[in-house]
Measured scan of single mutants.
Amino acid sequence: MEVRTIKVFTTVDNINLHTQVVDMSMTYGQQFGPTYLDGADVTKIKPHNSHEGKTFYVLPNDDTLRVEAFEYYHTTDPSFLGRYMSALNHTKKWKYPQVNGLTSIKWADNNCYLATALLTLQQIELKFNPPALQDAYYRARAGEAANFCALILAYCNKTVGELGDVRETMSYLFQHANLDSCKRVLNVVCKTCGQQQTTLKGVEAVMYMGTLSYEQFKKGVQIPCTCGKQATKYLVQQESPFVMMSAPPAQYELKHGTFTCASEYTGNYQCGHYKHITSKETLYCIDGALLTKSSEYKGPITDVFYKENSYTTTIK
């Protein structure tokens, strides 16, 4: 009895394709271990004539594949690729409408935090270190965002349907971005203890939790000093293409032309909904596939993004 075979390709990165001759009487799992086709788990399936010449994702289970996976995804987590594939199996079914010149995501599976993050990423200057993220990001900007969303979920250790947080998501993504040249110098002034300067680099240099107003941050924000008295913390120097200011959701007025974009969060910790506000020729609110415009805006804002380049204080 002759062994019926077909020729397929296996890959971990969709760049390096490895030619395989597979036995049609055995499952993919018996031949390769966990195997995925377009995100779908085909591990328990036997090869079919229609699979001839198709590319299958496999887990990096030998040295060659491990090197290829690390170079593309910059992670050695053995569960990463499987999590990416199972997320992709959902995100490829989502709709990605162009809204006001940006790629958004039609609401499904509690994905409003991903839509808000995706919209924000198209408006701030950011370059990702893992080629996987950078490639998928370019495709997302062009309207094909399924891979990018699935990668975000995998890097953030999230599953489809789980509630997510924009600030946490951005923080994970910033860790995989090139923020080497970003720098922030802060000064804390206390009447009792004097003053202390701190220099922050990388992710810490672009994120701040405690106030939404970048102007206020430049002037000074009140913080408790270690001595128990009130101290003032203010920005001395900022070198970065953008800054992200966050605070627990509270009524906040966004003035046209003073910011790049913002995240609105309605609801409580267990259950809520994100919308995205962007400042173009007027203010726009993007909620999944829905767009509304207004000249002014007041609502429960939790993150505001500002364009920056270089700032030095005039406070002496």
Rank of each mutant, 00 (worst) to 15 (best):
D303S: 01
T312S: 11
F174H: 00
V166F: 07
A262H: 00
Q31R: 12
A87G: 13
G228R: 05
N268H: 11
G82R: 14
C261L: 04
I315A: 15
A146D: 06
D38W: 09
N14L: 08
P248N: 15
A142H: 14
I6N: 02
G288W: 00
H51R: 04
T314L: 15
V166Q: 04
T292C: 08
A177L: 06
S295T: 12
Y72Q: 10
T313P: 09
K191F: 03
Y96C: 00
N111L: 04
S104W: 02
H51T: 05
N61A: 12
E296W: 11
L179S: 08
S310M: 15
Q98A: 10
Q222Y: 03
P300M: 12
G210I: 02
Y172N: 14
K255D: 06
L291T: 14
F305W: 05
T27K: 06
M245S: 01
A145W: 02
R141K: 15
K54M: 12
S181P: 04
T198V: 13
R139N: 12
D38T: 09
L59K: 11
P224W: 06
T199C: 10
S181A: 14
Y155I: 10
C156L: 06
G39R: 05
D135H: 12
A40H: 12
E204W: 03
Y284T: 14
T76M: 15
F259L: 00
A177N: 04
T282Q: 11
T302A: 08
A115Q: 12
F56P: 02
V21K: 13
E125K: 07
G161Q: 03
K95M: 09
G53M: 14
L126T: 01
Q196F: 13
V3D: 14
Y28S: 08
L133A: 05
A250H: 15
K280F: 11
Q30G: 13
Q216K: 10
I45L: 13
G39V: 07
N187Y: 04
Q31E: 05
A40M: 14
N61T: 13
S246F: 04
K218S: 03
T312L: 13
Q196G: 06
K316M: 15
Y214F: 09
S86N: 14
P47D: 03
K219E: 00
G299M: 02
D41R: 06
A250R: 11
A154P: 01
E253F: 06
L212Q: 01
N61S: 11
V206H: 01
T55L: 06
K7M: 12
N268W: 04
T211N: 08
Y138R: 13
R139M: 13
F217S: 04
N157H: 12
S294Y: 11
S295V: 12
F148C: 06
T120F: 06
V99S: 08
M85Y: 12
N129Y: 07
C225W: 02
A231H: 05
T64K: 12
K293V: 09
S104N: 06
V243L: 09
L212D: 04
K307Q: 15
T266K: 00
E168V: 15
T199Y: 07
I286Y: 06
V243R: 02
P300W: 14
Y137A: 08
Y137E: 07
V166G: 02
K95I: 14
N89L: 10
N61C: 10
K92P: 03
V185T: 08
F148G: 04
Q20W: 06
K219T: 12
L121N: 01
E204Q: 15
V304G: 00
I15Y: 08
L179G: 06
F80E: 03
G33M: 01
K298M: 13
F242V: 02
T120D: 03
R184W: 00
A115G: 09
R167M: 02
S171G: 08
M26N: 14
W94L: 04
L179I: 03
D41Q: 09
S79Y: 08
G161A: 02
L133E: 02
F242D: 07
T260E: 11
G33H: 00
T226Y: 10
D62A: 09
T282Y: 11
T169K: 00
Q251P: 14
C271Y: 15
T211L: 10
Y311A: 06
I45H: 14
T313M: 15
Y28N: 09
C261M: 04
W94K: 02
H74R: 09
T55D: 04
T211D: 03
T76W: 09
T260S: 06
Q122L: 01
K92M: 08
D135Y: 08
I277T: 00
K280Q: 14
C112Q: 05
Y311S: 07
Q251H: 12
L235V: 09
S213Q: 05
E2F: 10
K44Y: 12
H90E: 11
C149I: 09
G202M: 00
Y252Q: 09
F70L: 15
P241R: 06
Y84Q: 01
E2N: 13
Y155L: 04
D63M: 06
L88R: 04
N111I: 03
V22L: 11
V304P: 00
G257S: 06
A205Y: 01
G210F: 00
A262E: 03
V185F: 02
V58T: 10
D303M: 09
Y284M: 07
T226L: 11
G210Q: 03
F56C: 11
Y214K: 03
I315D: 15
I152E: 02
Y234R: 10
V243E: 00
L290P: 02
V185Y: 00
H18C: 06
A142M: 14
G53W: 10
